[in-house]
Design a protein around this nucleic acid. Structure first.
Lengths: 132, 132
DNA sequence: ATTTGTGCAAATCGTTTGCATCTGA
DNA sequence: TCAGATGCAAACGATTTGCACAAAT
């Protein structure tokens, strides 16, 4: 983790190493600041909520995390930087990866507006409880 | 506008009729509460910011507006309820419709998770200035 | 007359910032 | 040593809510 941080141009401080381990050691994760902070507290990692916010933003700026486009006010990050898609559970505000064998295929990318280039395509499938 | 509101199960009050006219009289629009409130004030429509927020949420719940999934903290609504997609300009936080003749085709919707149904699919093409 | 909507200000939620203190290179 | 990171609390921006008043049916 120290190396990963150094490679990204950040000092490997206790808090960053600890948060990085929580984020990157167990496969793909979807976190918001609040959740990650709770986890850290549970695991006896002393870190303030403000530092969690700052760290997530730094990780994003360094290309270690991706910010996910969502309806609503909260910001989510995804540790999976590869090209993939999400389910968004409207009633619980949860985010799930769409299994790669069910990914939606996109045909025909549009031309970007004049002078622009495409940075990425976000696909979010909003789902809600079946009312049946 | 009164009829449209009544059809949606809302009392056609002065404020709702006025905001509805701003929103639906001039083609497709992307608005956040702040912007719509400014417009209303400019046009001498006395309405509070709180009422603009409430009204936008009611319009969305009634199916007159769509909330757009975006990175970041502000909530945008789109008066275009038809199935369409957006460019998101990363440097300026702007939202543009993708012209319908350049829409991305989606192949193979995934199964929704157990007990869930698909409410909609949001596609956002993030673009940024070409660096060339 | 009854129900529903409105305005205001205060409350809330998620997030950022200022500043004194601490820490890693 | 000292630039840079952290914690705390206060500031902040966007949004929601409680309550007295006003308007629509």
């Amino acid at each position: 983790m120290s190396d990963k941080l150094r490679a990204a141009g950040m000092r490997p401080t206790r808090q960053r190493v600890a948060l990085g381990s929580l984020l990157f050691q167990s496969g793909d994760r979807h976190v918001c600041a609040e959740i990650l902070h709770e986890e850290a507290v549970e695991q006896q990692i002393p870190v303030s909520l403000a530092t969690v916010y700052n760290t997530l933003n730094q990780f994003r700026d360094a290309g270690l995390l991706r910010e996910v486009a969502l309806v609503g006010t909260r910001v989510y990050f995804d540790t999976n930087m590869s090209d993939h898609q999400h389910f968004y559970l409207e009633e619980s505000d949860e985010l799930l990866d769409i299994p790669s064998n069910h990914t939606i295929k996109l045909n025909g990318l549009p031309e970007a507006p004049e002078g622009m280039e495409i940075a990425g395509v976000d696909v979010v499938v909003r789902v809600r409880p079946k009312k049946s």
